[in-house]
């Protein structure tokens, strides 16, 4: 049994035609789908009161309904396409007003411009799938000299596009090591993150310091008398100059180990190895010549014995 049409409009059966119209309009103003763009329930109720009004608002049909000749469903009205069904789409875009955003620019510097200024023909917000992809990594090579690689440094590289990139080179970086700067690569697409910058380090050789693992190797010339008598000699290290003790009777090829004077990395600190090399004075004077001649008479020795045996 369908609902009583008079109660749908909330009027008594004795209501005048004017009262019925008034009651209908009051409800319709509240429930019209185009006055409630987002409310589906309002649309259903509006359909019901409109169907009721179709019959009760028409003197002839109202008479037939009262006499029971037609039931509450009367006849179905042709399906009406409400404006709200189009307003959100492309076709309705040119009617959409941006007046509701006039003051939003003042509210948000960043987003204010986004809204209400894009003209009529753009697509609605629900548009197609967005494509997102992480940005590509950018590859760079950076040459640093050994001391900077060992002690760490900060440098700025200029990119091909004219931009710059600040790179912190960690202490102890090795030749061929790749530094990764997160997010400094190519920009992402859509919501994708930017790629990384990959910086391959190449360490320029140093004229004095050679690197071997975490150790530094330096060749240090000593005099003939320092070799024989021993003494303190000045030795360069990556941390500055230090004095190293050369024991008496040191020879070319012998190595002194300076503990903790090497490269500091996460795994610890290396040593500096000082390779001694005995160097005669550039000019051999008569004193030295005379001494060598006398000394040879009494102290012959054969440093090449092993060489002969092995060859």
């Amino acid at each position: 049994m369908a609902e009583d049409l008079y109660s749908v409009l909330g009027v008594p059966k004795t209501a005048s035609a004017g009262d019925i119209t008034k009651a209908y309009r009051k409800l319709a103003k509240k429930l019209h789908p185009d006055l409630n763009p987002g409310d589906k329930a309002a649309g259903e109720k509006f359909k019901k009161i409109t169907a009721a009004y179709d019959i009760l608002g028409d003197a002839e049909k109202r008479g037939r309904y009262d006499r029971g000749e037609i039931d509450a469903s009367g006849q179905e009205r042709p399906q009406q396409h409400y404006y709200r069904e189009y307003a959100g789409g492309q076709d309705g875009a040119r009617y959409r007003s941006t007046a509701g955003f006039e003051d939003i620019g003042a509210f948000s510097d960043l987003f204010g411009d986004l809204f209400g200024e894009r003209g009529g023909t753009r697509e609605g917000g629900r548009g197609g799938a967005r494509f997102s992809m992480r940005g590509p990594d950018a590859q760079y090579r950076l040459e640093v000299d050994l001391l900077n690689a060992v002690n760490g440094t900060k440098t700025r590289i200029t990119l091909p596009d004219g931009g710059t990139l600040d790179v912190a080179i960690p202490a102890g970086v090795t030749d061929g090591q790749v530094l990764r700067l997160k997010g400094k690569g190519g920009p992402g697409i859509g919501e994708g993150e930017p790629g990384d910058a990959l910086i391959e380090i190449s360490v320029r050789p140093h004229p004095v310091f050679k690197r071997e693992g975490d150790d530094i190797i330096v060749e240090v010339p000593i005099t003939f008398d320092e070799a024989v008598l021993g003494g303190k000699v000045e030795v360069p290290t990556i941390g500055g100059r230090v004095f190293a003790t050369v024991p008496p009777g040191s020879n070319t090829g012998q190595t002194l180990r300076l503990k903790g004077r090497g490269i500091t990395t996460k795994s610890g600190t290396g040593d500096q190895l000082v390779k001694l090399s005995v160097v005669l004075p550039e000019r051999i004077d008569d004193d030295l010549k005379g001494f060598a001649e006398t000394w040879r008479e009494a102290h012959r020795y054969d440093p090449r014995r092993k060489l002969r045996e092995r060859a």
């Binding site: 307003a87 959100g88 959409r96 007046a99 509701g100 809204f115 609605g124 917000g125 967005r130 919501e191």
Partner: peptide, 25 residues
């Protein structure tokens, strides 16, 4: 009335696009 309705649809449309973007975050 039409002016108000058009404003509502303008607001709804921008709100939808904003929500669409938020949905993808």
């Amino acid at each position: 009335l039409l002016n108000l309705i058009d404003q509502i649809h303008g607001l709804r449309s921008e709100l939808m696009s904003l929500l669409g973007v938020l949905e993808d975050l």
